[in-house]
Simulated scan of single mutants.
Amino acid sequence: MISRILCTAFVLCACISTTILCINFKEQQWYYVISTVFSNVSNNDYIDIDLKTAHISRNVYGISGFIDVKRDIPDDAITIEIQMSRSVSGSNNYVVLPFKYKENILYCWLNNMYRDILMPSFGNCSNALQLGNREFKGPLVKKKFEFNKCLVNVDTLPKYLIPAIYKIEFKSNGLAKIYVQLIVRVYNKVF
């Protein structure tokens, strides 16, 4: 009798624990604060870029600035690569993570990573490309893209990240060598 009660109690506890874990991981287990944004371009005859952190509210920072495409850019004239590193100690000891977007031509990046992760974030704070369900077909036409306190929507990112400082580097090669670096602090959410 006692073993039956204990067994039932154990099963009930296991079900409750599993349900709580499932509920918690439906939501993001982390939040981020942008610490620094650095941008540089080697040849501003084609593209000019100036991105920086912008204070939105207490402990909330976004990205403001512009990317100015000064001439039409053919599909295969620029490649994009993204690398992510992490520092748990808070020092400059960054460990390269396997989260990497291997170097690929611009329109492939626009049709994949940009459309899935960045485009939904920029809809309300910029005039950046909005592709909807259509594929981008080049060239990238002359236009100045303005960003005003943009935050990246994390709904499409992993539900759990280790609390640390992350360095995200966007690099391009081709007509213009562009470098954008974001330093982001990730914290655990407290429920």
Rank of each mutant, 00 (worst) to 15 (best):
M1N: 15
M1T: 09
S3L: 09
I5N: 04
T8F: 10
A9M: 09
A9V: 14
F10L: 12
I16W: 07
S17E: 05
C22M: 12
I23F: 10
I23S: 11
F25Q: 10
K26G: 15
E27G: 11
E27F: 09
E27H: 12
Q29Y: 10
Q29E: 08
I34L: 13
I34G: 11
N40K: 13
V41Q: 13
V41G: 07
N44E: 05
D48Y: 08
I49L: 06
L51C: 06
A54Q: 12
Y61I: 02
S64C: 07
K70P: 13
D72R: 00
P74S: 02
M84A: 15
S87G: 04
S87D: 03
S87A: 07
V88E: 07
V88T: 14
S89V: 06
S89C: 04
N92F: 02
N93S: 11
V95K: 14
V95D: 12
V96R: 13
L97V: 06
P98C: 04
P98T: 10
K102D: 13
N104M: 11
I105K: 11
I105M: 02
Y107P: 05
Y107V: 02
C108I: 12
C108A: 12
N111A: 03
M113K: 06
R115N: 02
R115D: 00
D116C: 11
D116P: 02
I117Y: 07
N124W: 02
N124Q: 06
N124A: 11
C125Y: 05
S126K: 01
L129E: 08
L131T: 04
L131K: 07
E135D: 09
F136P: 07
L140I: 00
E146G: 03
F147N: 04
K149W: 05
K149R: 14
V152A: 08
V152N: 03
N153V: 13
N153F: 07
T156A: 14
T156C: 03
L157E: 03
P158C: 03
K159Y: 08
I162Y: 11
I162R: 15
P163S: 05
I165R: 06
I165C: 11
E169F: 08
Y179A: 14
V180I: 10
V180D: 09
L182I: 12
L182Q: 04
V184P: 03
V184Y: 03
V184L: 01
V184N: 06
V184K: 04
V186Y: 05
Y187I: 06
V190N: 08
